[in-house]
Amino acid sequence: MADEHTLAHQNGAGPTAGTGRPFYQAVGNEEAVFKAAYRQGLSLVLKGPTGCGKTRFVEAMAHDLGRPLITVACHDDLTTADLVGRYLLRGGETVWVDGPLTRAVREGAICYLDEVVEARQDTTVVLHPLADYRRQLPIERLGETLNAAPGFGLVVSYNPGYQSVLKDLKDSTRQRMVAIEFGFPAPEVEEGIVAHEAGVDADTAAELVRFGQAIRRLESGGLREVASTRVLIAAGRLVAEGLPMYVAAEAAIAGTLTDDVAVNRSLKEMIGVYLTSHD
């Protein structure tokens, strides 16, 4: 089980070899598996809870491999044309514009489809010839099939614990990929991540992590998602700005995990128990 951590998605080009390496601390063999699969032209699926850092891991791997990264945040309305491309009117002329997946195939970039199961299944089928030995992208509108340029890599991610049966990854897609499973890191590792990313001292990071772990131990408590490393970092950043710990935790953790009044009240009571030293 690998640790991962932190933040956001970016559409378009991501880190390249010319920038500093995104902060990522490995705890298992996840980096070796990713790089071995990439060198063999194998696609990857990253499985793990929301907010523990799958995106940061991919950014770090793209940096290490010296490849540009194109990230797509998948959603219900994502169509095949959104990924592959479409004809658009420009200056009175109809021109073809590549989608992010096609750009990655042409340029030899790593294409990362974040939360891929949020996309419609008829959209993700286009990945099949890219994800297996063919490494090809059929573009029906152009009547051509692109061979992936050297350096191209396909990576997708999703949260298996959150998705419904209707939004699971199809077996025909899953079995074309190498899987890497992620979970929340061990406490001492997560404390270091929170301290580094939020710019807070070790004691503050330790308190936030203990609080996060307490939330994760709840059987359900009406929460759809537990406290991720991402929200702990956000709370730490508020503390770094001078906010009291309990204010930061209410805003960045309790307030973001639920809209249920009773559950929110319970989380605030937990804040009083675990973060009292900073009231």
Rank of each mutant, 00 (worst) to 15 (best):
V156W: 01
V239Q: 10
T256Y: 11
T229K: 12
T173P: 02
G151C: 00
K268V: 07
P185Q: 05
I139Q: 12
K170W: 04
E190L: 07
E219P: 06
V261W: 08
Y133T: 15
I180Q: 12
N159W: 02
N159A: 00
V231T: 11
L142N: 10
D201R: 05
A240D: 12
L223K: 06
S220H: 13
N159F: 00
V178W: 07
R237K: 14
L154H: 00
P185N: 05
V156A: 09
Y158N: 03
E241C: 13
A262P: 02
V263H: 01
Y133A: 15
G255W: 06
L142C: 08
E241F: 08
F211W: 02
Y162R: 13
E188Q: 13
I253M: 13
R216D: 07
V189G: 05
L169A: 03
A262L: 15
F182W: 08
A252I: 07
V261N: 06
L137F: 03
G272T: 09
L154N: 00
R265K: 14
A254E: 06
I139T: 07
G236M: 09
A234D: 10
V239H: 04
Q163P: 06
F211A: 01
K268A: 04
A202I: 07
N159R: 07
L218K: 14
H196N: 14
Q213T: 09
D259L: 09
Y246W: 11
L169H: 02
D259R: 11
S228H: 05
Q163R: 15
E219F: 04
E197D: 07
G255P: 14
G143K: 11
I193Q: 05
R237T: 09
A179S: 08
